[in-house]
């Protein structure tokens, strides 16, 4: 067996540091600074390990979300993570190139209240590559079942799509100073209508749903600007 490793560590991240968009919904694989995890740590970095399908209630975060502690770790080469350290998720270059190696401990987990998470400083968002790897390691650590990362992608790619489109939707609203027409709530309503959420589950229909979302955003922005 061998769990996935990485060729280029930066590919594990969608955004880091100042690149993180404040408009992106909190999602699996987001790393936050200074968060208390009951029974684990009073303060420190943490990564959301909750599954995308269970961490939200409609447009809002669930009341509490499963988070694992993140901290410094010996620098271990990529290839060794495939065959060991199963209770950890490597987070190389988390704070940039040349900065100390860090890792999440998949045994130091606890529920963090949504308000606390939302108030914390988000320092990184994992990419789909990183999230799939996090899920693979979490499942292996808990069950000793090795699931190829491609299966996580095939099963849950639609949730990453939803997060991407929600970010685009809310960002467009923020760009025109809107707080009512292009919000997480209006996106949720739009997405649930006319089978759009189901369309995102079908790889063949995703692109047309994306196009439709962008046309809708453009129409709403035009309406706001009139």
């Amino acid at each position: 067996m061998s769990l996935d490793a990485w060729d280029d560590p930066s590919r594990l991240y969608l955004t880091r540091g100042e690149e993180v968009s404040p408009h992106r919904p909190f999602f699996t694989g987001d790393v936050v600074e200074s968060v208390a995890i009951p029974g684990v740590q009073d303060e420190g970095a943490g990564i959301i390990v909750a599954h995308p399908c269970t961490m939200r209630r409609g447009p809002e975060l669930a009341e509490s979300v499963l988070v694992a502690a993140v901290g410094p770790h010996d620098e271990v080469p990529a290839e060794r993570w495939g065959r060991g350290y199963f209770d950890r998720m490597p987070l190389p270059v988390l704070r940039g190139e040349g900065r100390p190696f860090e890792a999440a401990s998949l045994t130091k987990v606890g529920l963090v209240r949504a308000e606390e998470l939302l108030a914390a400083d988000r320092i990184a968002c994992l990419s789909e590559v990183g999230i799939n790897m996090l899920q693979q390691r979490t499942v292996f650590n808990l069950t000793r079942l090795e699931v190829p990362t491609a299966e996580f992608w095939a099963a849950f790619a639609h949730t990453y799509e939803e997060a991407d489109l929600l970010e685009e939707w809310v960002e467009a609203g923020a760009d025109v100073g809107d707080a009512t027409v292009l919000t997480a709530a209006t996106f949720e309503t739009w997405l649930r209508a006319d089978g759009r959420q189901e369309s995102l589950r079908d790889p063949q229909q995703r692109a047309s749903t994306r196009s439709e979302a962008r046309r809708e955003i453009a129409a709403r922005v035009a309406g706001i600007e009139q």
Partner: peptide, 16 residues
């Protein structure tokens, strides 16, 4: 407009 995801465009062009 053609429906490409931003993350795919980034990958296809070789940037973040």
């Amino acid at each position: 407009e053609l429906g490409f995801a931003w993350r795919d465009i980034a990958r296809l062009v070789g940037v973040t």
